Simulated scan of single mutants.
Amino acid sequence: MALSRAEITRYQRHIVLKNVGGAGQQKLKAAKVLIIGAGGLGSPVIAYLVAAGIGTIGVVDDDVVSLSNLQRQIVHRTGDEGIEKVGSAKRFAQELNPHVQFDAINKRLDDQNGAAIIAPFDLVIDGSDNFDTRASVAKLCEQAQKPLIAGAVSLFDGTLTVFKPYEDNNPRFVDLYPTRPTPEQLPSCEEAGILGPITGVIGGLQAMEAVKMITNVGEPLVGRLMIYDGRDARFREMKYRRAS
């Protein structure tokens, strides 16, 4: 997919980057990425993928902006309080990069509508804030044979992995999470709080995985769970495999 003169100037730091180059930037422009959630994780993912020149970005969320979101959800502004998050995110995207097509999907993704929402996209990034939605998105992506970049955050910590269970007998969501965590194990942000920058760390890494996978640079986190401890500033990795 050809780049305009303005796009060549905008993306020149990618174009001169070894192993990305003009061909990689063209792949980014041709890509269609769906982001689940325009909240804490979705915000940095949106910001970096819009800036990177992903050709089509879809964002699905049925929530509205509240003041308590703004401590971490960086694509929204104080004046956006009460408006649809996908509308606020679209305004952000259009102001940052007019070359990106932004599809604002003001819905809650579920088992009934999920397959139709996911179908037009090449890759899915999950920034949802509850386990049930994550499990549903993983099942839908497995059925549609779409790669899924899954991130989660809580308190001071975050995790990140990539699911491609339809290839090479790679592990599935249920292999990593065979049982549903209890509410005590997985408290909500409203109940337990969350340090704002942790969403930027994990969301930025989700965007990094997306760019890597689209441009075929490096090794994605398939079968590997990256765990970040924000208090001690430590990354560690846990490998997991398919159970059957």
Results as ranks from 00 to 15, higher is better:
Ser4Cys: 11
Ser4Leu: 14
Thr9Met: 14
Arg10Val: 07
Tyr11Gln: 06
Tyr11Met: 07
Gly22His: 07
Gly22Trp: 00
Lys32Trp: 02
Leu34Phe: 03
Ile35Glu: 08
Gly37Asn: 09
Gly37Cys: 09
Leu41Gly: 01
Leu41Ala: 07
Gly42Arg: 06
Ile46Phe: 04
Ile46Cys: 02
Gly55Phe: 04
Gly58His: 03
Gly58Val: 01
Asp61Tyr: 09
Asp62Val: 04
Val65Gln: 06
Ser66Ala: 14
Gln71Ser: 14
His76Phe: 07
Arg77Thr: 00
Gly82Phe: 05
Val86Tyr: 03
Val86Thr: 14
Asn97Glu: 04
Gln101Gly: 05
Asp103Ile: 14
Asp111His: 12
Ala116Met: 13
Ile118Arg: 08
Ile118Thr: 13
Asp122Met: 06
Val137Asn: 04
Val137Glu: 08
Val137Met: 11
Leu140Gln: 11
Gln145Cys: 10
Leu148Trp: 05
Ile149Val: 15
Val153Ala: 13
Phe156Asp: 07
Gly158Gln: 01
Asp168Asn: 15
Asp175Ile: 01
Pro178Tyr: 13
Arg180Cys: 03
Thr182Gln: 09
Thr182Gly: 02
Leu186Thr: 00
Glu190Cys: 03
Glu191Asn: 10
Ala192Gly: 05
Leu195Val: 15
Leu195Thr: 10
Gly196Phe: 12
Pro197Phe: 04
Ile202Met: 09
Gly204His: 00
Leu205Trp: 08
Met208Thr: 13
Thr215Gln: 03
Asn216Lys: 13
Gly218Gln: 12
Gly223Asp: 07
Leu225Met: 13
Ile227Met: 14
Arg231Ile: 14
Ala233Tyr: 01
Arg234Pro: 09
Arg234Trp: 01
Phe235Ile: 08
Arg236Trp: 09
Arg236Gly: 09
Arg242Glu: 03
